[in-house]
Design a binder for these strands. Sequence first.
DNA 1: CCTACCGATCGGTAGG
DNA 2: CCTACCGATCGGTAGG
Lengths: 219, 219
Amino acid sequence: MNTVKAPAKTAKKTTSSSSPPIDDIRDAVTKLKRERIISTALELFNQNGLTNTTLDAVAEQMNVTKPFIYTHFKSKNELLSEICSRGIRASLDVLDRVVASKDSPTVKLRVLAHDFMMAVIENQSHIAIYTREEKHLSPESSKAIQKMRREFDRKFCALLEQGVKDGEFQVDDVKLTSLSIGGLISWSYVWYRPDGRLSKNETADHVAELVMAMVKAKR
Amino acid sequence: MNTVKAPAKTAKKTTSSSSPPIDDIRDAVTKLKRERIISTALELFNQNGLTNTTLDAVAEQMNVTKPFIYTHFKSKNELLSEICSRGIRASLDVLDRVVASKDSPTVKLRVLAHDFMMAVIENQSHIAIYTREEKHLSPESSKAIQKMRREFDRKFCALLEQGVKDGEFQVDDVKLTSLSIGGLISWSYVWYRPDGRLSKNETADHVAELVMAMVKAKR
DNA sequence: CCTACCGATCGGTAGG
DNA sequence: CCTACCGATCGGTAGG
């Protein structure tokens, strides 16, 4: 009955610039499966810790078996790596967007503090897992993520420097202040509760206000 | 040759209020051994992570064998528990000392921020291990430590409340501010380097200054 | 996409 | 305080 025969499994790369619909579907399905695995692992790693979570448990939660996971990830480690890098990537994306804007340092910092806080809240599990399981990452993943973190720090420091230069901020030690602000926000993965007293936005607003006070921003 | 015979091993508890010197020595030796085990485990757990550290490795580092450790701790878990609670205990002790003083809220907060920061630096490995390995604690240890943390939060909030009430601080949301300050300082275990640019004291002074700005303390 | 399995690791203990 | 060992767990794979 099938008039459209699926291409051989090895023919993954299409040579034409526009893929036929059948490949779109296949890719979408593959991606969907990958995402399901990631979100299930995210939940269990966060709840019970990496080493207390077996891949059998992840599979069971999805009503599949372990080898299914191995068709999409080559190791437990690769799964961990994907989860961790997404958390850091989200924060770095926020910073890049802010830095690219044409606003004053004061506005940039307020937006950054707010949106970075939102990113941590949205990626609470990713950040928790990365913080706890960094020692379990492969050296390569660990280094790649460290690199993103250093990039974050560098760009963040530059933003503070600019604010000081423009006379908008008053800061004793830019490096220490940037680490402190970063820590204040990062640590929120520990205490923020989605069902808590304050909404995400209210929390982010308050936090942004605290950050502005830390750099003694002009009103 | 020995005229003083050591008492039987089961006679650990002395009935008189003053122990004979022989027991002092025995206790001191036992304690010394325990401390050596703890500090070795602290170093290795911190360096490689809990599950990447075997008790055989801890023993090897001390030039003993694994059963030696089991004469002083009944499980790997108890060792972890001891390490984690010490880290939190140190912070709570600082807070209790500050709260007991007769100073104004402003002075109390400055001293607290400084000394809490010092405590985190001095117990950097303990805090790192606790943060990473909390899921590996037994439910009882975990609860006992959580209790200390809640006590810390409660007392810290009370201090901020007092400062607001006395008109020394200006704070939008006491709870969120206390969590933010706590996080800023706790997170420093991630970035502080003992051989870095700033000494412990300089770092603690700067951090205290940032904290005072967060509550808009009067000069 | 599953059944069935291997093989290494390691916390903990027996017995001395 | 050691030698020697058990026994459970679990990441990963063969083969279909």
